[in-house]
Design a protein around this nucleic acid. Structure first.
Lengths: 195, 195
DNA sequence: ATATAAAAATACATATGTGTCATTTTTGCG
DNA sequence: CGCAAAAATGACACATATGTATTTTTATAT
């Protein structure tokens, strides 16, 4: 496959992403993608064989970009609470950006495909985030910024709250205020009480 | 519409429920329901006009049964922490009962239909649960069982965690141990510290 | 028993989707 | 330029879904 084909592949994936953002996963057909890309039926089948395959490649693309989630903030000599707050704020931004996310499509995809743990990208990301947050809380406790008896439990709790907010954002809707209060609540619970 | 028709209507809804449990929402067709009910195409259209309509009626049926969620436990003269624990245990049971729930279908339905607040059953249920939990926590604080400065925030937090667990159960999978720990964590945070 | 209306089944017209394949177009290179 | 390989096209055969119009069955009152 030549350089040009690689370009076209990428173009298709980027265009398909928009379609998935728009329509979720289950409703998207090869036809939809063909039309969005303005190519021919046969042309698409030359590159991909199903919406499922395309979606998985789109997710792969997406993940590669998102993998350095914390890396920027961790590099600097910021405090644990700085980093955690930054992370929570990032999550908030993501949460409120209802349009232009694959969230819905990703959920739908995983509803349909109960992948084994090893292939479950979502699970890997969740677990990795929990571990990072746990480390962060641990560091914060060390430095006296946080008080927490169970960093692992707390980290999981934070992630479940974020997941809860995410699904609520997609179904019942959440306001920026709701997200703010929730994030503040999470953070406040960690901080050493001033009283 | 005669008594017989009412019976048949009910039969269709109950059978359709099974189909939705099995396949979620988006994938279900009128044909699927026709076949599950072992009736004819035209026959089904005599009673319902779309899968969307059928699903909404199934949800209505479901909600009517679930509406007295707390009522049983509240009647008795149990303590706040008793009631809260009972509720959390109920939720746990529900969470682990992966098969035979409409959870997935409900999410899918709401992905597709961004209903206005007033018609959003899910939102109503969420808000109502938050209010009940808030009251419960308030009562627990009064009676000295709980310590909590922000019952409303805490109640919302509990609900977001439960939603997070629910979506995780459908996508990345949760073990009974995970749910247990999470529930314990929620509860422990509320209880007056013994130290 | 039979006429009648209600209920149910079937067949049909239409629409949309899939995957393939013979054909055409484009591209790169001697 | 000219031609072989690569890329792309669009029509085809097939499958599945929808909603309706017509026919058949069933139940009931006389």
């Amino acid at each position: 496959m030549g350089e040009k084909s690689i370009q076209k592949r990428k173009y298709i994936l980027e265009t398909a992403r928009k379609v998935f953002v728009e329509k979720g996963f289950k409703k998207v057909t090869m036809k939809d993608i063909v039309e969005a890309c303005d190519i021919s039926r046969g042309g698409l089948y030359l590159y991909f064989e199903s919406t499922s395959q395309i979606f998985q490649e789109v997710m792969k693309m997406e993940t590669q970009e998102a993998d350095d989630l914390f890396s920027d903030s961790i590099k600097e000599d910021a405090t644990a609470s700085d980093i955690l707050l930054l992370f929570l704020r990032e999550q908030k931004k993501e949460l409120l950006r209802k349009k232009d996310t694959l969230t819905q499509a990703i959920y739908e995809f995983y509803f349909e495909n109960q992948l084994p743990k090893k292939e479950n990208r979502l699970k890997k990301q969740f677990d990795s985030a929990v571990r990072i947050i746990e480390g962060l809380i641990g560091a914060g406790v060390e430095s006296g910024e946080f008080y927490c008896e169970d960093p692992a439990g707390c980290a999981r709790n934070i992630m479940f709250v974020l997941e809860g907010l995410k699904i609520c954002a997609q179904t019942i809707g959440v306001t920026p205020e709701m997200v703010d209060r929730e994030i503040l609540y999470l953070f406040k619970n960690l901080c050493v009480e001033e009283e």
